[in-house]
Computed example of a mutant assay.
Amino acid sequence: MDALSIIAALGGLSETARKAGAPVSTVQYWQDKGRIPAWREAQIREALVADGLDPAAYLAPKEAA
Rank of each mutant, 00 (worst) to 15 (best):
V27N: 02
D54Q: 11
Q31T: 00
L10E: 10
P23R: 00
I36F: 02
A64E: 14
Y58K: 11
P61F: 09
G11V: 08
E63G: 08
G12H: 07
M1P: 08
T26S: 12
D32Q: 10
V27H: 00
M1C: 09
A57H: 06
P61A: 13
A60E: 14
L53M: 14
V49I: 15
A3N: 05
A57K: 13
A22R: 07
Q43F: 04
A9E: 11
Y58V: 06
P55L: 03
P23W: 00
P55C: 07
R45Y: 14
V49F: 08
R18E: 14
K33R: 12
W30E: 01
P23I: 02
P61H: 09
W30F: 03
L53W: 07
S14E: 15
R45E: 15
A3G: 04
A65W: 10
A65R: 13
T26F: 02
P55E: 06
D32Y: 02
D32K: 14
Y29G: 07
I6L: 11
R35G: 01
P61Y: 08
V24W: 00
K19M: 13
L53N: 11
V24R: 03
D54C: 08
I7K: 05
G21N: 06
E15V: 01
V24S: 05
A22V: 13
V24G: 00
Q43E: 15
E46S: 14
D2L: 04
Q43I: 07
L13A: 08
A20G: 09
K33Y: 01
R40P: 01
E63P: 01
Q43A: 15
G34R: 00
K62E: 15
R35F: 06
E46W: 05
T26C: 07
I7H: 05
A47T: 05
I7D: 08
A8E: 14
R40S: 10
A17L: 07
W39N: 15
L48K: 06
I44A: 06
W39R: 15
A22N: 04
W39F: 15
K62Y: 11
T26E: 08
R40I: 04
P61G: 11
D2V: 00
D2W: 03
E63T: 05
D51P: 01
K19V: 06
D51Y: 05
A64S: 12
D54R: 13
Q43H: 12
A56P: 04
A42Y: 08
A60L: 13
G34F: 03
G12V: 07
A56H: 11
G21R: 01
V27T: 02
L59D: 10
V27W: 00
T26A: 14
A65N: 08
A42I: 07
P37H: 06
A50W: 10
L59Q: 10
A3R: 01
A17C: 09
K62S: 15
G12T: 07
